[in-house]
Computed example of a mutant assay.
Amino acid sequence: MAVYKVRVATGDITASGTKNSISITLVDSCSESRRMSVNSWFLPGKEKDLTVHCEQDLGPIVLICLHKWRLFLEDAWFCKDVCVTAPYGTLYCFPCYQWLEGVTVVEVREGSAKQLVNNELEILKEHRRLELKAWQEAYQWKSFAEGWPCCLNVGSIHELDSNMKFSCMRTTNFNGTLIFHRASMLLGGFLLRPTSWESLHEMRSIFSQTQGREIGASCVLPPPPP
């Protein structure tokens, strides 16, 4: 009997762990292992180890299948990567870096860099074809208005998959930066100006350094005296 050691890593971003059921299947060019469940909860930034027993050596592992299933409440999971150690010590790495939502099965191919022409196995060619088809369906464009650039073919950002949206941390950073610069322009006299500009020099001064400080530096407290 062949024994494979599997390590599953969860991303360290906010709310990346899950309490839903996760299982894994190892796939080679001709066969696959039985589906093996990963027990206990997945916590952000943590790894889970499990052992997969097969009746015979599968040979080179080309794909893994991650199965996510929920009983009651939805709890999305962000998988960082999966590492598989074969019985003879060969290490296979499967970078995932994506959210798994709902009841779903995600196929992840082995991470060795290869050109498309080097995909000799039919299972990898089919995986690539289905992957491209999914991307083409997800990233479609529509005309916003005559003469305007095209935009994504969705009604709102809430229709987007989590893998297509900013992460919670990046959204927070973006909004924080936006608030800071709006406050800077307000304090610098750019916003809510009741009169016209007198010269280009006056306009440039709003976006340049003033007395060695950036616009908005008045919001920063001076350092304490020595």
Rank of each mutant, 00 (worst) to 15 (best):
L192D: 12
S23T: 07
G147R: 07
V105T: 13
W141R: 14
E107Y: 13
C96D: 05
V117C: 06
G59V: 06
E198W: 01
L100F: 08
L63A: 00
F42V: 05
L71A: 07
I179P: 01
L121K: 15
K80F: 07
K125G: 00
S40P: 03
P149E: 06
N39I: 12
V62P: 03
P222D: 07
C96R: 09
K114S: 12
R182I: 14
G216D: 03
G11M: 06
C83I: 13
M1P: 13
P223G: 01
V38Y: 03
R170N: 11
E32K: 13
P224K: 12
D75Q: 10
P222T: 05
W69R: 15
T18K: 05
S184C: 12
R128P: 01
S196E: 08
P226V: 07
L160A: 04
E107W: 14
Q211N: 15
W197N: 00
C151H: 05
S208I: 02
L152F: 04
D81Y: 15
I179D: 10
S33L: 04
R109L: 01
L130E: 13
T25E: 11
L116N: 13
K114R: 14
N163F: 05
S184M: 06
L66R: 06
V82D: 01
N39F: 07
D57T: 03
L200F: 11
L187N: 06
C168D: 13
H158F: 09
W41S: 13
V8M: 05
C79M: 14
F174Y: 14
W77L: 08
A9Y: 14
T171F: 10
L191R: 08
R35D: 14
T10S: 12
C79Q: 09
I123R: 08
L58P: 01
L124T: 00
W99L: 03
L152T: 07
F94Y: 10
Q56R: 15
W99R: 06
R70V: 05
A113G: 06
A217N: 13
W77R: 06
W41N: 14
E198A: 05
H127N: 12
M36G: 00
F207V: 14
F94N: 00
A145F: 00
K48W: 01
V52Q: 04
R128T: 15
I22T: 07
R70D: 08
T10L: 03
R182W: 13
H67A: 02
I61M: 03
M36N: 12
H53G: 01
T18Y: 03
H201C: 04
